[in-house]
Simulated scan of single mutants.
Amino acid sequence: MGGCSAPNCSNSTSTGKQLFRFPKDPVRKKKWVLNSRRDFEPTPHSRLCQDHFEQSQFEEIARSSAGGKKLKPNAIPTLFSFGDPPYPAVTTPYILLPMKPEPEKELNFGDHGYARRTPLPGMEDEDADKTAEDRQPCTQCQLLKKQLEQEMQHTARLQKEAEEMKKRLYRLNRIEKGLQNFLYEDQIRALSLTKRSRRAVWSPETILKAQKIRSAVGTKGYEYLRELGYPLPSYRTLCNRLETKIMVTTDMSCEMLAELGLGLMAPCDSPTDVVGDNDEEELMGVLS
């Protein structure tokens, strides 16, 4: 019975090894021959045993007709018991040819390392100066490095300021939401105006609310709230913005009529309400 055709291999079917014939495809057969390191032309009786194939070259489930292992259609033998080959085993679809030996190069004694390390007489100082110049850092590089450090520091400061502004904006949003619970939008806008230069435009809801507050706390309490900075229109603005006006002639002051709660208004010429709220402009608007 035939045995394995690989060098230094005496396996055969009598030793319990499975043999595989060389493929008929000439390209694939050439790969088998190159990997087996034999310069011969395989015959129909030439075989390679299973020890020269990696486990990945066998089918996982399929079996041969005799019940043994079955090679994959593109299986290539790569396991052989000899030293490193002069060229790698063929595992790709390309045929690798042996590398050609490079021609020997003539030695150039003038380019020897000792000659390069040994300067000529009188050139020692020049080499030392060049080495010192090479070791000195570039002035432009130092300037660019310093500018880069300054830019990085400036960027870090801007990032820190941006974080602080985010926190402050978050607190202001929380404060605004809290003010919206008991103040209207026009009252919130009036908080940003200075006391002596207010040019607030009051909404009808704020006028009605201010009238209720004045009726509840009285004249002195209302003026005290305004002095504390509570955003409320002046009494003159309330007089000018009332939709229904009943003018009566009486010796009673505006404050006394307001305390009666009768809804009667008298012409108010009190000099105490001349500050703020753009009263003169609103009065001209009502008259026009």
Rank of each mutant, 00 (worst) to 15 (best):
48 L>D: 05
129 D>E: 14
155 T>N: 04
63 R>M: 13
240 N>W: 12
142 Q>F: 10
131 T>S: 14
261 G>V: 04
235 Y>G: 11
111 D>P: 00
151 E>Q: 03
263 G>R: 04
215 S>T: 11
286 V>P: 02
88 P>S: 00
134 D>C: 13
165 M>Y: 01
97 L>N: 03
73 P>D: 14
229 G>S: 07
213 I>A: 09
131 T>F: 12
85 P>M: 07
288 S>N: 12
183 L>K: 06
2 G>P: 06
169 L>M: 08
287 L>E: 13
186 D>K: 09
222 Y>I: 08
202 W>C: 08
99 M>K: 03
205 E>P: 00
33 V>N: 01
249 T>W: 00
2 G>R: 03
166 K>S: 10
219 T>A: 10
285 G>W: 11
54 E>L: 09
36 S>F: 04
89 A>H: 08
96 L>Y: 04
4 C>I: 02
238 L>I: 15
197 S>Y: 11
77 P>G: 02
230 Y>P: 02
113 G>E: 04
188 I>Y: 03
123 M>E: 15
165 M>V: 07
60 E>L: 10
269 D>N: 12
138 C>P: 09
157 R>T: 00
268 C>R: 04
154 H>E: 08
104 E>C: 05
161 E>K: 02
240 N>M: 07
163 E>V: 03
106 E>K: 10
28 R>L: 15
17 K>L: 02
82 F>K: 01
26 P>E: 05
113 G>I: 05
238 L>S: 11
5 S>Q: 03
254 C>P: 08
83 G>R: 01
185 E>Q: 14
120 L>C: 05
196 R>Y: 13
287 L>D: 12
85 P>T: 09
6 A>F: 02
114 Y>A: 09
202 W>I: 06
182 F>Y: 14
162 A>R: 02
238 L>Q: 08
207 I>V: 15
122 G>W: 02
30 K>A: 11
231 P>H: 12
23 P>I: 09
260 L>M: 15
177 K>Q: 12
158 L>F: 01
209 K>A: 14
96 L>G: 03
151 E>T: 01
238 L>F: 11
45 H>W: 04
210 A>F: 11
12 S>E: 00
46 S>D: 14
65 S>D: 13
181 N>K: 09
80 F>N: 05
270 S>A: 09
175 I>F: 12
232 L>Q: 07
210 A>M: 06
155 T>Q: 06
208 L>N: 11
124 E>W: 03
125 D>A: 15
63 R>Q: 14
253 S>I: 03
42 P>I: 00
35 N>P: 04
51 D>P: 00
46 S>P: 05
108 N>Q: 10
185 E>T: 15
129 D>Y: 13
253 S>G: 14
127 D>W: 13
